[in-house]
């Protein structure tokens, strides 16, 4: 009896212990939110909701608005997503469906290596390689095209496009690894079912991708989350100019970049508070994006759960 009792108490202790660790997560998230709010009270009280929608960022005059940074963060992240998603999915499909066996491991290793490169190294590469390339690309564009708002502006090289490209490269390994795992978990029966109906290889792969669509959306959203918060490399190539512009070539600014750049220069309480509020805004936007993607995945995955229920009760249903 003693032994059983001891085992029980070990089980209980284990549950409480791991539960406490899980609780730490919740506590950390709440603490971050609370602390960010507390430290930016000055700015919150002074600007209120206008902080979210004013374009002026003038530390000398004590005027602070987050809109250019919100714009820059969302623009650069969405641009990165637009570039990275097709490439990452292509990589994932190639590795999981088409790649010869001997090539698979090296490719997986290489994509994971891409994720391990420090952000500052990407930034250096961006400054020395990507920025001149973007500059050359812009000057080589026909002038008629450069009249468009999307491509206007002087050929600086630094700007939104450079930031989007570098973010895309940094996001690709995450999106493609998750998408690859998701595709790997698609039952072989799905592909065979398609083949058995006269599907070509392309059509069978499409069936597998369709089966894995919720997971693939999750992979894309994971990449989006990464892009939102990425700091160093973006700071080095985006141009750091708090002006809202639709142009791909205009220097702009992101929330993470302004924090990295100006934190040490914040000489007034209000300035510091405004910067911390930008951190709070970034925190809230990331939270919202992640919750929305969760919700999306959840709503798409629901029929699958009905499937599980149907498997349990086939006898009852066919007897009815």
């Amino acid at each position: 009896m003693g032994r059983v009792g001891k085992k029980r108490s070990i089980d209980l202790g284990f549950r409480l212990g791991t539960g406490a660790f899980a609780l730490v997560l919740v506590v950390i998230v709440c603490a971050i939110g609370f602390e960010l709010t507390r430290q930016s009270m000055l700015s919150i009280e002074k600007f209120g909701f206008d902080f979210w929608r004013t374009e002026v960022w003038d530390p000398v005059a004590g005027q602070f608005g987050a809109l250019p940074f919100i714009w820059g963060t969302l623009y650069s992240s969405l641009l990165a997503l637009a570039i990275a998603t097709p490439i990452a999915l292509g990589i994932a499909v190639f590795i999981s469906e088409l790649c010869p066996n001997w090539l698979r491991q090296p490719l997986v290793f290489l994509t994971e290596l891409l994720a391990a490169i420090p952000s500052i190294v990407y930034g250096l590469w961006g400054i020395f390689v990507l920025v001149p390339a973007v500059r050359a690309f812009e000057t080589s564009m026909p002038s008629a095209l450069r009249q468009l708002p999307m491509f206007s502006g002087p050929p600086l090289g630094v700007g939104m496009l450079a930031a989007g490209v570098i973010l895309a490269i940094m996001v690709i390994p995450f999106t493609s690894s998750v998408a690859r795992e998701v595709l790997k978990s698609v039952p072989a029966a799905q592909r065979e079912g398609a083949y058995a109906l006269g599907a070509t290889r392309f059509e069978a792969i499409r069936a597998a991708v369709y089966f894995a669509r919720t997971g693939i959306i999750g992979a894309v959203m994971l990449g989006f989350g990464r892009a939102l918060g990425e700091t160093m490399a973006v700071t080095m190539v985006i141009g750091n100019n708090p002006k809202i512009s639709a142009s791909l070539f205009a220097p702009q600014y992101t929330m993470a970049a302004v924090l990295a750049n100006e934190f040490t220069e914040a000489d007034t309480e209000l300035y510091l508070n405004a910067l911390i509020e930008i951190g709070l805004v970034l925190f809230v936007i990331t939270l919202v994006v992640n919750s929305l993607s969760r919700l999306l995945i959840w709503s798409m995955a629901r029929p699958a759960r009905q499937d599980a229920a149907a498997v349990v009760v086939p006898a009852a249903e066919s007897a009815a």
């Binding site: 799905q190 065979e192 079912g193 058995a196 006269g198 369709y210 089966f211």
Partner: peptide, 17 residues
């Protein structure tokens, strides 16, 4: 075309989602 002419049903039902 062969697989279209020779249909197949599997051990575990595998409808597409």
């Amino acid at each position: 075309d062969l697989r279209r002419r020779v249909g197949m049903v599997f051990q575990k039902s595998n409808p597409f989602p």
